[in-house]
Design a binder for these strands. Sequence first.
DNA 1: CGGTGGGACGATAGCGTCCCACCGGTGCTCTATT
Length: 472
Amino acid sequence: MRSEVEGVIEQLGYQNLRPGQEEIINAALDGKDVLGILPTGSGKTLCFQATGQLRAGVTVVVEPLLALMRDQQLRLQASGEKRVLAINSQLAPSELSVVLQNLSYYQFIFIAPEMLTRPDILRALQAVKVGLLVVDEAHCIYQWGPDFRPAYLRLGDVRQRLGAPVMALTATAPENVRSVIVRQLRLQNATIYAGSVDRPELFIGRESLLDQRAVNERVGALLAQVAGPAIIYCPTKKLTEQLAQQFSGLHGRRVAFYHAGLDGHTRTLRERQFTEGSLDTLFATSAFGMGVDKPDVRMVLYLGVPATLEEYMQAIGRAGRDGQPALTALLYTAKDAQHTAGMLANLPSPILVKALYRAPKAYAGSDDPQIQLVLAYQQAGYSASEVNQALDARIGSKQKAFSAVVNFLQADGCVRAELLHYFDSPAKTHDDFCCGIADAGVLAQIHSEQQADNQGFNTWQEVFKQIFNVSD
DNA sequence: CGGTGGGACGATAGCGTCCCACCGGTGCTCTATT
């Protein structure tokens, strides 16, 4: 290892490097573009913190959430680095104009893509030397760019104008997503480090159930059998509230629900309570998770059919970060699959795009998500036909991603192998603590066997073997 | 695609039933009012 790297990681409070980190840091220090796919945890943060400390010039870090900017800022400040800035809407306009004139003072600048694509801010950054552009949670480019946050699609432009090498980091990116990231960010001869995304400590269960009632009962049974903190992902806000009420206090569990309809204060509070342990069971939508780093989540249940396997992998990946065994299960009904399928083409039509481009002011302030999306494209500098083109391509890629989900649901071999094959990543060898498939009929049988043999369980392996019909 | 909430309607004075339109998960930022 380079000695200067060694010194910096020690200063940042880390013991040593994990696989991949050294390759990523070295490539970035040499001024190369790099895309790093690393399993969850602090692994990615260390990469850009260390590189940023050692490279001349400002390190600009694109983060998707205000909460992530805040966390990262605090972490760096705690390690003794004071030249850290977060540029976002929390900054008063007067403060913003002051910092924009003093950007070169800072070593790290955290910013959301919407702010980074703003002309005045981009100009201010162009005027200083940017040594490194980091795109954290880079899968957002693919996952959120086209139909949620189009500013993510303008990062290639930004990169070109700043003239800095790029370090893109994510935990989940199969080959097709990697190529989207490379193309969108205009990476040149990028060093791609893709570690295995397998998580051997996770048991991966997959169950098809008859109806929603059966799903709910199954959730109750699993909450009773598996002790420890649990996240139950639900497809709708309404279901998070229903289930939280239904299972409140069950087996002494301290339960809450979490979704984007809650006010910011409550969200922050519940996240902290869950992280610190005064809540142990969270019924949540996909709003919960990014940036949450709770090590001892023992179970993640995913209710419904995800639109992409990335989304599913991100969700179950929040279990067992301490490396101890954890249970994950996908619980779905046939209706769930149809529900998800029906949402795929739910994007603004060319008619709406045309109307909005003719009279944008008439629609300003609308809370319709489709209108907001088109306006965001417009703000990001897209022409109407470019928007239509982007949305059209998006429908195709969503359908493709969903067909991978359907294949995954239908595959009857090793579930883990199937999943990791999609991520172009090697999987551990199948064993008892690997994965399992169950369907409604098998479950009824297991349930009655469990009632007959009410002995309690000794090891995680036994629990999982009994809960699931582990395939051989 | 499927669930659902709201409005219209019919047959009758308080309420069913049907149909249709619309919604469903994610978050930045800005702007105009309380």
